[in-house]
Nucleic acid binder design. Structure first.
Lengths: 226, 226
DNA sequence: GAATTCACACCTAGGTGGCAATAT
DNA sequence: ATATTGCCACCTAGGTGTGAATTC
């Protein structure tokens, strides 16, 4: 076969908007991995009902997929290095291909998921691998934020999401319509928490209080195309 | 000022053809860094004499520049990992900007240089940094190959080099002239050792014999534009 | 009928030598 | 006179949504 240069060779997509976190409370001289995985929120499959603009349960979840972990590319780094920067997960890739062998995170379409951030001390992490679940226990802290729950799709169900991505993702610049931007964006601002991309602080010492620091949780719809 | 999108923001260049080496004799379970630096061959400045097609001495070398080390991006990795692959230095960047703060390797134009490959055991490398000379002594092995000596320029002095780069570097495809390629390439094949890119084996146990394994050394002219 | 796939135009981001302009 | 710089067209490589075709 002859492949044209613009052909998509693998059905995957980056996460957008990307999750970004700020870390606090690490030992500056200790080495850490930071990783993300994405876990099901419930055991249901959903469909989008247009006339009510809502996601409705449409049966039970599909069978589980191979566990995958995105190890942040700055790993391994010292606590000091991690705490100096905003840690961004913008290169994490999602796919709905259950046979994927590129290490991308595999998800079912039309399901609800939640990303989790793991901070893993090096001396407890002998078995860390993109294809194994993150170990738990001493030296591993896991964080998740309710406002980052999202629903997977293969085609956008909501015109506001399409506009958000076109207006905010640099790679979609070709679809921008300058006449529409101002008013469209203001509507999205009121609806979604990520108008300024979420930068969250993970505090080891005060994790149990963290929910209160976040402001009001909002439902964020992220999308992916298979 | 307004920057156009195609403006070059930093005066640097990749090394091409890239140096590629194959490593042998490491402890598979030990961790190693692999790094490259580039050292002056002599204390001279050169100019190219067209009518004789030779480099002639044109005075003493310019003042020394800040030492820089390119740490191979796959570092830190196990001996096993390093030995499984051809280690390529194609992303190493050169500049003639003595004030460079991007960690690129700084060289003077119109001087002769030689790249060196360093294999550094992790437990001996506490001070490894892109801005410090590579440590020497126990746990550090340094290799260099006489056929990889090159002369730096800001404009090509030799049409064969221009043809080589146009015909072999994928990013220069726009300058290829299909009518010229065949005969031009054959002339270069006879002149330069890197017609097949150099893949060299570094053997810890048998380093002193290595020169003999290499075939006849040839002078390779690499170039850079500031 | 709804969900998914695919080729495509259009972007971002950055690596080429050419060549005219500038610097030494 | 020679060496260097800056802008450019033209590439590689890969991330977007579109809309028609396909699948289920």
């Amino acid at each position: 076969i002859i492949l044209t240069k613009t052909q998509t060779l693998a059905p995957y997509l980056r996460m957008f908007p990307a999750m970004r976190v700020k870390i606090a409370g690490l030992d500056p001289h200790q080495q850490y991995y930071i990783a993300m995985d994405i876990v099901p929120v419930d055991n249901k499959r959903y469909r989008y009902v247009y006339h009510s603009s809502k996601w409705m349960v449409a049966g039970n979840a599909d069978s589980p997929v191979p566990p995958r972990v995105y190890i942040h590319p700055d790993s391994l780094a010292s606590g000091d290095t991690w705490m100096r920067q905003v840690v961004s997960f913008d290169k994490l890739k999602l796919t709905n291909n259950e046979l994927d062998d590129q290490g991308h995170i595999i998800l079912h379409s039309m399901h609800k998921y939640q990303p989790r951030v793991h901070v893993i001390r090096k001396d407890f992490s002998s078995e860390l691998s993109p294809n194994k679940p993150v170990p738990s226990g001493e030296g591993v802290k896991t964080f998740s934020f309710p406002e980052t729950v999202f629903t997977t799709v293969t085609a956008y169900q909501n015109q506001q999401i399409t506009r958000l991505k076109i207006d905010r993702n640099p790679f979609a610049k070709g679809f921008r319509d300058s006449g529409r931007n101002r008013t469209g964006l203001e509507a999205i601002m009121e609806t979604y928490a990520f108008w300024r991309p979420p930068v969250r602080t993970l505090t080891f010492e005060d994790f149990t209080n963290m929910q209160k620091q976040q402001g009001k949780p909002k439902c964020v719809l992220w999308t992916f195309v298979g």
